[in-house]
């Protein structure tokens, strides 16, 4: 497990770093508004954001035992994101795949290993990048309500994302954070696990929604869309009135879109 990284001294990074946004498949396909929230947060922090053509980091293949596909997709990403000072993803899971697992994928191939290591070294999860690398201490956003925050597993345990989202959420006007019980326990998503072992996944997410509801919060936040879709899907199936959003939407003050799994206003 990684130690929580400390802030990079400002002298060690470019004045206006070029950031390649790794938007992640789920944000790209399901909830683009999270991508635009990430762009706003990065630009507000002084970054120049670019979005090279991309698909997936390869984690579903990697975790399914298909190393060849995982390598092919990793090489694609290594190539696409080589030109940037930093690579940032609004997901601890996808950033974790690049940071923790790409080097392992190419450990036996010195030519690519060097590039994989280089990409891993400059890749970050969005909120920890803002705090630890860009030195962001506050955001310019307002959100009226009580929120609770779920620590998604990969971000927490592979990348040490824990205090950074809380630090920034504390500066959102009108927002109160109330912690749920067992906020570091998995929500039961686990990628393909949620479908392959749906019944077990369901039992795990039931315990999670119980803790979410018991927290009394009006809105659930987390940093990974997979986990959020799982929890949102369970909350709505249970008829719970808790709204669900990616933490970037709230930090960017971009909460006009309906919450995850909710209809557009007037529908």
């Amino acid at each position: 497990m990684l130690e929580t990284p400390s802030a990079v001294p400002s002298s060690a990074r470019p004045q206006r770093p070029r950031v390649g946004l790794f938007v992640t498949c789920l944000v790209d396909l399901m909830r683009p508004s999270v991508g635009f929230a990430a762009v706003k947060l990065l630009e507000d922090a002084g970054c120049v954001v670019e979005v090279p053509r991309q698909t997936c980091c390869g984690q579903p293949a990697f975790n399914s035992g298909d190393r060849d596909t995982a390598r092919a997709l990793a090489e694609q990403a290594i190539e696409a994101f080589a030109p940037y000072d930093y690579v940032v993803a609004p997901s601890g899971s996808c950033a974790g795949q690049i940071k923790a697992h790409y080097p392992e994928l190419f450990a036996g191939d010195p030519n690519i290993a060097r590039k994989a290591d280089a990409l891993a070294a400059k890749t970050y999860e969005l909120v920890s990048f803002l705090v630890d690398v860009m030195g962001v201490t506050e955001v310019d956003a307002r959100f009226d309500g009580t929120v609770t925050y779920h620590d998604s597993c990969s971000g927490l345990r592979e990348l040490g994302v824990k205090r950074q989202p809380r630090q920034l959420l504390a500066t959102v006007e009108g927002l109160t954070l109330t912690e749920m019980k067992e906020n570091e326990v998995c929500c039961g998503f686990g990628g393909t696990f949620a479908v392959k072992y749906g019944e077990i996944s369901n039992s795990i997410v039931e315990k999670k929604t119980e803790n979410i509801v018991a927290s009394g919060a009006h809105t659930l936040l987390a940093g990974d869309l997979g986990c959020l879709m799982n929890m949102a899907g369970k909350l709505s199936r249970e008829g719970q009135p808790v709204e669900v959003r990616h933490v970037a939407e709230v930090l960017a003050g971009m909460t006009d879109e309906p919450p995850i799994g909710a209809p557009a206003p007037g529908k």
Partner: peptide
């Protein structure tokens, strides 16, 4: 209309137990 699906073909492992949130529309890219 609903912002979510109660059932989806080939995704019973998911939708038997929870809703599947609908995408927003045009992709980010």
């Amino acid at each position: 209309d609903k912002g979510r699906f109660k059932t989806l073909p080939l995704a019973g492992g998911w939708t038997d137990f929870r809703d599947f949130p609908a995408p927003q529309g045009a992709t980010f890219q």
